[in-house]
């Protein structure tokens, strides 16, 4: 009980801090600082219609690379932690799911996949992007795993996609150093016509890679947990 009381006190203390923040907060009515610059210059500078995408992939491209890395290492970490001991290699056999589910899978799987791909390819134009697309792709994989619990998705394939897309992302970033202003500069390729699919330099390419990577990573993570 004493412990609970102590926890409550700790929580109240932090609540005081939060209260101070909340009571001094007023909704913003105009942009300021760097965001102002992004809104005014961003479209012209990087050629992406979706400003969030510009920020995510280029202005703060290093963050995104880092974010990809976090996901990558959490997948690697999960595989390290959940690695199987050699001697306990028994296969888990689960009852197949119903036919309805399986049929739905065969119809929906490609559609969901396609939707995911659409999202990350159009990331620089519309809401969405690599992560969102990748998540959709992974949901397709999850669906697959749920529907056909005894079939596994090729581990090696996922790993290869994951590795290669990550590596290519880095290579594209380095191209920025060599051919343009700096690491992860998207202006290696021409900016293209504003608002079209082939515009905004490397952004679509990177988003494709991110999408592939996120999709395969989440997929392999799910796979790990399933095992």
């Amino acid at each position: 009980m004493l412990k609970r009381l102590f926890m409550l006190i700790a929580l109240v203390l932090i609540a005081i801090l939060f209260f101070d923040v909340a009571s001094n907060f007023t909704e913003r009515s105009e942009l300021s600082g760097i965001s102002q610059y992004y809104v005014e210059q961003g479209a012209e500078e990087l050629g992406a219609a979706n400003l969030v995408t510009s920020v995510v992939v280029t202005y703060r491209g290093l963050d995104t690379l880092g974010e990809v890395t976090v996901l990558f290492i959490s997948a690697a970490g999960a595989s390290l932690l959940l690695r199987r001991r050699r001697n306990t290699n028994k296969k888990l056999v689960v009852e197949e799911s119903s036919e309805i589910v399986q049929t739905t899978l065969s119809i929906m799987f490609p559609i969901i996949m396609l939707f995911g791909v659409y999202i990350f390819i159009n990331g620089h134009l519309t809401p969405g992007g690599g992560f969102q697309g990748g998540a959709v792709v992974a949901s397709a994989l999850l669906f697959f795993m749920l529907a056909r619990p005894n079939d596994s998705i090729s581990h090696k394939l996922l790993m290869k996609i994951e590795s290669l897309s990550g590596f290519t992302y880095v290579v594209l970033g380095v191209l920025g150093v060599i051919l343009a202003g700096g690491f992860l500069d998207n202006r290696v390729l021409g900016l293209g016509e504003f608002g079209s699919l082939f515009s905004a330099g490397l952004i679509p390419l990177i988003y494709i890679l991110v999408g592939l990577k996120v999709g395969s990573e989440l997929g392999s993570l799910l796979q790990k947990f399933r095992e």
Partner: peptide
């Protein structure tokens, strides 16, 4: 000093 994205800070990392 290393700038990324070919853009000066504080607008890029």
């Amino acid at each position: 000093e290393i700038i990324t994205a070919g853009i000066q800070p504080p607008f890029a990392i």
